[in-house]
Structure formats: C-alpha cells, structure tokens
Design a binder for these strands. Structure first.
Length: 888
RNA sequence: GGGCGGCUAGCUCAGCUGGUUAGAGCACCUCGUUUACACCGAGGGGGUCGGGGGUUCGAAUCCCUCGCCGCCCA
C-alpha cells in the first residue's frame, strides 16, 4: 500500500539522480525520431536561482518532457553565461572583502586566473539549483560561453564580420560607465527620472553688445562648450548669428551658430553646444565642424583640458564649483527646478557619461534586415504574437552596436596592432603575426587589443555555438535550427534579436522556429521582486516547503500569456494539496482491487460509467496535447486539475465503488481494469508538469496487476494518444443525469437541514423512459452518494415530500419530519424566482421577431427548449409551494 | 511624446474567433470523521465584467471615447 502522503524531500533527489544516471535526459539515438531542441537562456554563472528562472525553466522542462514523451529526439541544452561585468564585479568584491590587492594592482593575468578559480568553485550553483526543480537538461552537453569551443566560434564570427566590414573601429561618443570604466551599449543604459535643476547662465557677447542666456542641467560641461546654437528662424537672435560669446571661466571665444536643433519655444531658445559630452551636441558639432574638447578622464574626473583649478575634481564637485563661479561672476540668471531623465549604468547604478573613445562597433542595421524578414515571413514566430511588434520596432530603428568593453573577464578581441597602430584582425595570434610580417616585410611585435567583447556578443551565438559550430557536427545538423526558445520579454533586444541576426548571418537559418515569451514574476501585491524591497520569493525555499511539483504546477498554471505573475504561498499550497489528492486516489483504487488487466482495450468497455471515464480521459488527453503543443501551459494545467480532481476523483472513483463492491463480477473486473488504465493515462498526462510525484506513483503502482507494456521510467514512456472514437455521448448523458440528480438532491438536503445521518428514500415521480432506466440501473450508486435508503418510483409525490427538478425529471425526498416549513418555502421561493428570471429573459428574446429571424436556428431552438424546461420546472415547484401553503 | 498590457466575486486570475443562468482557486458561512484523501468531503453567500457611447436580434467578448494602474521606447 502506498504511503499516506508523498514525501518530496526524500523522493525528489532520489528520483532526479536516477533519471540523470539513466541517461534519459539525452535525446534518443533513433535516427527516425523527429528532433526537438531547446537551448536554455544561459543564466549568469554568478547567478542563483530566482523565481524568474524557476518559471522560465519550468516551462522549458514541461515542454521538453512533453516532446520527449511524444517520441521526439528531445534535447534541452543547458549552460551558463560568463556575464562579463556581473562576474568581474562579484569577484572584485570578494577579493576586496578578503583584503586582497585590487584588480589593477593584481594585473590582468592574475585577476583572470582568480575569476576562473572562483568559477570552478562557485560557478555550478545555479546549475545544481536547476536540478532541484527537476529540469531534465542534457547535462552531458552543458556549455559555458567562455569554454574553448564557444570561444572559437566568437573569434570566427568577429573576424568574419570584420572582413565583411560589418565590424569596424570608430571614435564616437559612447555611454561610459565611470564606475567600471568601460563603455556599455545603449541597452545597458537605464533612463531614470530624477529631480534636477536648469541653471540659466549668461554668456557675454564678445563685442560687449550684450549677453545670451543658455540653460543646462549639467553646468560642468560648459567648460567644454565650443558653440552656442540658435534656431535660424528665431528672430530674436538673427542679428547675433556669426558673432561670438566669451565663455566665462574658460575665457574662450566661441561662435554663435544657426542650427535646427534648438527649440525656440524652450527656455531662451539658445543652447550651449558641448560636442564631447552630449549626444545631440555631438551631431551639431559634426554639422558645423566644431572642435570637440573632452574634459573628463575615465573616472569622470576633470582632466587637463579643464582650467587648472578644476583638474582632478570629480564631475559633481566641478558642477558645484562652476555654479559658484557663475554666481560670483554675476552671470547666474536663474535656477529652475525640473524633473528630467538621467542615464544610469544598469549594473553600476552610476550616472553614465557620453564619452569620446575608440570602440568596436557592429553594423547592426545590416544584420537586422534578414532578421526582420525572417519574422515577417513567419520563419520564426513569437508567442504571444504581439511581441513581434516590439521586436520589429527595435530592429527597424537599430543603432550600431558597441561591442567592446574595457573589462578583463570575457572574450578578448582578436585584433593585434602593429607599431603604427595598424590592426590585424585574425582568429589566432600566429595568423596575425604572419599577416603583419607580410605587411611590414619583416617579423614585427604586435600588441593585442586590451578590450573584451560584450557578453551578449557570445550569447548571440548560443543556439549554434553550443551545438559545435563552426565545426560541422552531427548535433548541429540534427538540432539546428532549434525549435522553441522560451525567455522573458526583458531580453528580446539584448538576446533574442542578436541571436536572430547572428544566427541568420552565419548559418543562413533562423536560430529557432518559435519564441515563447514568458511572463514576469512579481510578488503577491504586484511589485517587481527585488532584494532591496525584501520581497523576493526564493524558489528553493518553496521547493523545500511544498515540493518542486507544487511550485512547478503553480508557475505553469499561472503562466498565462504576457501577464505578470503574482505569486503567493497560498497558491503553491493549493497545488501541493492537488498533488496529495492525486497521491491518495490510487490508494482507494488499490483497496478495491484495481489493477491493470493484460490486453485491456478501453474501446471495449461496456459499463456506461467506464465508457464515460474513458471518454473524459480521451478528451483530457487531446486537450492537454493540443495545449502543450501550442505553449498553452496554463490551459494544460487547468484541464488536468479539473479532470483529475473534479471528474476522476470526485465522481468516477465514487461512482466506481458500488461496482467494485457489487456482485456483478464482470462489471467489477471491467471497472478495476478501467480504473488502472485511467490512472496510468493520468500519470502520463501530468508528468511534464509534475514529474516527481507522477514518476513515484508510476514506480509504486508498477506491480499492480499485469505488467505495463512500457518498462522503465514514466519520463520516457509514451504520451497518450487517444482516438475520439472512445468518446460515447450516450454514456456521457447517463452520467450527467446521475451527477445532476445527486447534486440537486444534496443541495435540497443541506438547504433544508436534513441531518446527514438521515436516510430517506429518493422518490422518482416523473421521468422519461430513458431516465427511468438509468436511475433504476444505478440505484445503488445514487443511494450511496445521496445517502438515501433506496430509489423508489411513485405515481405521485406523497404529502410533505420535497420535490426537485433535474433535466425535466421530477424527483422528491420524503423528509417532512425533518424540515422546517419556512425553510422549504424559502427554498422553493428562491428557486421559482430564479426560474422566473430565466423565463423572462428567454421569453423576451423569443418574443423579439428579429431574434427569431436572424439568430441561427440552433440558438433559437436552444432558447425554446430552455424556456419550456424552465416553465415546466417552475410550474412543478409552484405547485409544491401552493401545497406547502395549504398544509401550513 | 510613441507603443504595449491590464482594469471581471474580498484577493489572485480564467473566460474575450460575440449566443446556456459570467467560471475557478483562496478567503468567508453552514454541515459532515460515509471503508483514498481534514493537504478532505458536501452545501451556500458573494460580481450592474473600470465609466460613457456605438455596432448587432444578441456584447465581459467587436469599435470609439474617457478614466485610472503597470511596463517598454524616446
């Protein structure tokens, strides 16, 4: 006999280990099996599993388990991302805490060695946490973005793009993070709205004829101004265009230029132009050939281009000093409060500077074109589809992608420079040297580029680099393009778009046929989970408390498309209870001798009850299959929940008891076999979502009756495929009548406070012949579930019996001695009122000639039937009400 | 400023290719230890589907508009 409850704590690790050891996570070898592949969104190697990972990976696992059970060669390829900035940050912090020398003191080689050391020790954390969730990844194929194969792919891609002139070096303004002293891409910049000020400064005209007012939120940049711009049509300034102002503090004359950029409606209409420290001003400067004066260093301190008293000052200290000086000079005209957006580094959190440096860029606009077309043509589809709009929007306005980072942890850029600065971009240093020798005519020392690549550069290759590209491997041929990518919308730009661009460019094929965008997990109040808010829910704690299956079911059930998921413990607890419900059902079946019968065929069962459950099981299997095939995770889990709890447990198992304990041996045997069959189907259907508990039940019921055709793990058993021929509408109708009669009867009993221990007869007053037959044949079942002594057919309901109407049949309970007339009157009055409301509504519809004329015939007919039924029922209950009045 | 999503029972959500009496879980109230399950069973109360307008025989569902709330991009 099964234990009373399932114990996830002991069973989950045991089952996972057994699965992993069996090799069942790897795709089957069968060359005829259709390949189905998913690559994991590689979590940062520094990461630990948060609830978002739990959701994302649960859905991937549900899908991969489903397709594996459908007989496909299912590959879920796992791995981690080296996460340049994040990892460097973590290790630097740890070194500092341990009192080590700083990264700079240590030097590049030693520091990078330390990071690898850290990775070897702590880098496996998240991967092991995925195991606790039940993730059936093929760990034998696990990859890391910095491992050798992937690094080869990165170099190959970089060199190829360079030679195709799609990667180039350029000097322009980048987003500079002064905390990490590196460039970052546009996407890594977070625009934050903050309170600030507009400082209105007066710049005196060079000829002494007056002044011009400019306003800025960043006073310190005035030290690098090289012009003042006004709109050419702004009549206030027509006269001064071409003149100069003398820049205060710096004491340098700068021109007043005419440009479309200033908005005459805003402020004074005149704008200071600082090409080196503002993206818009940089463009203006280009148009007018203005000098570009950079006054900052890598740490955003003022450099030697600033007046001597400013040199070495932090940018914010310099701001303060500039304002003070303007005030002292009498040139500060106004200080206006404002709210404006300020760019911050998403990792460092510090204000990012537009900063003029040499960086490597990818011509993303060229790569984007085929990536846009592929989605337009449906080669890759987004689910839900509306995310395509987001994708298109960004891709159609894509900017050059800055891919170099001034970090040490990452793929070092394969560019080597000669003494004259000429770059040799090759896959190996040896090849670069060879090229250099050819170029210079003699062996020449080269110096490799110090920078590394943006982490997303290598992640963008993930779907094919992990499969062995650029080698022509079997895996690549078999599993690329991958089938489905499951990820969050927050990385559509960072990752999905880049994979599309690089995948198409280097393999000629889309990297995945379908992208499922999963929701964002929030706390129970809808706030984004964050450490600082202290509202993070640790998935591992949930696994500890409720088991992985409960968490998985919760996440699956709540993964409605494009929605936030507000997660609460209560919900997880509810699904833990569902697991227990499932666990205990086979105990009931065992008690009653249910066991698999050799050669059982669900098509041949005779008893309506069994025909009904076979049909319902079939419907469920079909609907779950369709849902999962289309990433309808929520639908699939809801269907399973309802079927298992509300049909199988609530009705079938209860209905089966009289048959299982009755005298009809044939019916008994059939029911025992059907129950066992249905249970096995249920375990299979539920397995992708709740793998642990179903696998354990599968094992524990293995020797119940005839051996299963399938040996081994449930994980690799075949997902049910059941034909609609198994659905029998006649059986459905019979069971529906029984359910309705019992439900109504119970309702009557409880509303009238008939004691649970009382066992009156159920009187059948008026029925069709078919209904009469069903009620006769199932009398023991009705008696048991409605707690009545017998089912008796009578001509008229006796005085004081309580009538109720079910599907046109009139039934009654002779419980006069228990009831309170007032309660019964109230019940009948309520019923009659409800029917009257329905009648009024339906009759109204039918009285409308337009409705009868225009609505489809079946809808009209349905309404006619409803009206007739309701009127009949109402008449019967009104009769009862009248008799009650007479009796009282 | 542009775009997307949401607003349905006290809470969290489903329903939204228009057509039974708008559903579920949790919470709440009542009853119940009947041979799987109290992590349970049975019954019940609770919603003018954000406001307004329109299309239609018929709107939670389609269209317009307004109002909040959230997110993304500039």
């Amino acid at each position: 006999m099964l234990d009373k409850t399932f114990d996830p704590k002991t069973a989950e690790p045991r089952l996972y280990e057994a699965w992993e050891r069996s090799g069942g996570f790897a795709p089957v070898d069968d060359p005829n099996a259709e390949p189905f592949s998913i690559v994991i969104p590689p979590p940062n190697v520094t990461g630990s599993l948060h609830i978002g990972h739990a959701l994302n990976n649960t859905l991937q696992d549900v899908l991969i388990r489903f397709e594996r059970m459908r007989g496909k060669a299912a590959l879920w390829l796992p791995g981690t991302d080296h996460a340049g900035i994040a990892t460097q940050m973590v290790v630097e912090r740890q070194l500092a805490e341990a009192g080590n020398r700083s990264r700079r003191d240590m030097g590049r080689e030693e520091f990078v060695a330390k990071v690898w050391e850290w990775k070897a020790k702590s880098g496996g954390t998240i991967v092991n946490q995925l195991r606790r969730l039940g993730a059936s990844c093929d760990w034998s194929r696990e990859r890391f973005t910095l491992d050798e194969g992937l690094s080869n792919a990165v170099r190959k891609v970089f060199v190829t793009l360079y030679k195709q002139k799609l990667i180039y070096r350029d000097k322009r303004l980048v987003n500079w993070d002064p905390h990490f002293q590196t460039a970052i891409s546009d996407l890594e910049v977070e625009q934050r709205e903050v309170d600030g000020h507009y400082w209105h400064f007066a710049y005196p005209l060079e000829d002494g004829s007056g002044e011009i007012i400019v306003a800025t939120t960043r006073p310190e940049t005035m030290l690098a101004d090289t012009a003042v711009a006004v709109h050419p049509k702004d009549q206030r300034y027509t006269a001064v265009i071409g003149k100069a102002v003398r820049l205060p503090i710096v004491n340098r004359p700068i021109p007043i230029i005419a440009d479309e950029y200033p908005d005459p409606e805003k402020g004074s209409g005149a704008v200071k132009i600082t090409p080196a420290h503002d993206f818009n001003d940089f463009q203006v400067g280009k148009r007018h050939n203005l000098p570009v004066i950079n006054i900052l260093d890598d740490f955003a301190r003022l450099n030697d281009n600033a007046p001597p008293e400013y040199r070495g000052l932090d940018r914010f200290a310099a701001r303060k000093k500039v304002i003070e000086q303007f005030e002292a000079l009498g040139l500060l005209r106004e200080v206006e409060k404002t709210r404006h957006t300020v760019p911050h580094g998403d990792r460092s959190g510090v204000v990012v500077e537009p900063y003029l440096t040499d960086q490597w860029y990818v011509a993303a606009d060229v790569l984007a074109k085929p990536a846009i077309e592929a989605v337009e043509q449906g080669k890759t589809v987004f689910v839900p589809k509306n995310w395509e709009k987001t994708y298109f929007e960004w891709m159609r306005n894509i900017q050059p992608w800055c891919v170099s980072r001034q970090l040490w942890w990452g793929h070092r850029i394969p560019a080597w420079y000669g003494p004259d600065g000429k770059a040799f971009v090759e896959e190996t240093e040896a090849e670069a040297k060879r090229q250099a020798e050819e170029h210079y005519g003699r062996p020449t020392d080269l110096k490799q580029d110090e920078d590394v690549l943006d982490t997303w550069f290598s992640s963008g290759l993930w779907p094919f680099s992990t499969l062995g590209w650029p080698e022509k491997t079997d895996d690549l041929a078999r599993f690329y393009p991958t089938h489905t990518l499951i990820t969050g919308f927050d990385i559509i730009f960072f990752w999905v778009a880049r994979m599309m661009m690089q995948g198409l460019h280097f393999t000629g094929e889309v990297p995945f046929k379908r992208v499922f965008i999963n929701a964002l997990v929030r706390d129970a109040t809808g706030a984004k989970m964050s450490k600082s808010k202290g509202n993070v829910m640790d998935p591992l704690e949930m696994v500890d408390d409720y088991g992985a299956d409960a968490l998985r079911f919760t996440l699956t059930a709540m993964s409605g498309q494009a929605r936030d998921i507000k997660l609460s413990r209560q919900r997880i607890e509810g699904y833990r209870n569902f697991g227990t419900k499932l666990w205990t059902a086979p105990r009931s079946c065992q008690i009653n001798g249910c066991a698999r019968a050799a050669g059982f065929d669900p098509a041949t069962v005779k008893a309506p009850l069994n025909r009904w459950i076979v049909g319902e099981t079939t419907r469920t299997a079909q609907s779950v299959t369709a849902a999962l095939a289309g990433c309808g995770f929520g639908d699939a889990s809801e269907t399973l929940y309802r079927f298992i709890w509300n049909q199988f447990c609530d009705w079938y198992v209860e209905f089966a008891k009289p048959l299982l304990t009755g005298a009809d041996e044939a019916a008994k045997a059939e029911t025992q076999a059907t129950t066992a069959w249905a249970l096995d189907v249920i375990l299979k259907l539920l397995h992708p979502v709740m793998p642990f508990i179903t696998e354990e039940l599968w094992a524990q019921t293995a020797d119940l009756g005839a051996p299963r055709a399938e040996t081994g793990f449930l994980m690799t058993a075949r997902f049910p495929e059941l034909s609609s021929d198994l659905i029998d509408p006649a059986a459905d109708a019979e069971i529906a009548l029984l359910i309705a009669a019992i439900t109504e009867g119970r309702s009557v009993r409880q509303e009238l406070n008939v004691p649970a221990s009382a066992q009156p007869a159920l009187l059948v007053v008026e029925t069709s012949d078919a209904q009469r037959r069903v009620l006769t044949e199932n009398a023991p079942l009705v008696a048991r579930l409605l707690r009545v002594s017998e089912v008796r057919f009578v001509e008229v309901a006796p005085e004081g019996s309580i009538p109720f109407v079910v599907e046109g049949a009139t039934l009654a309970l002779p419980v006069a001695e228990f009831i309170d007339i007032a309660a019964e009157r109230a019940r009948l009055t309520k019923e009659v009122a409800s029917l009257a409301g329905d009648i009024a509504k339906t009759a109204g519809k039918l009285a409308n000639p337009d409705f009868v004329a225009r609505a489809p015939e079946e809808v009209v007919e349905e309404n006619r039937e409803r009206l007739a039924d309701a009127e009949a029922a109402k008449a019967k209950l009104e009769g009862a009400l009248a008799r009650l009045g007479a009796a009282a």
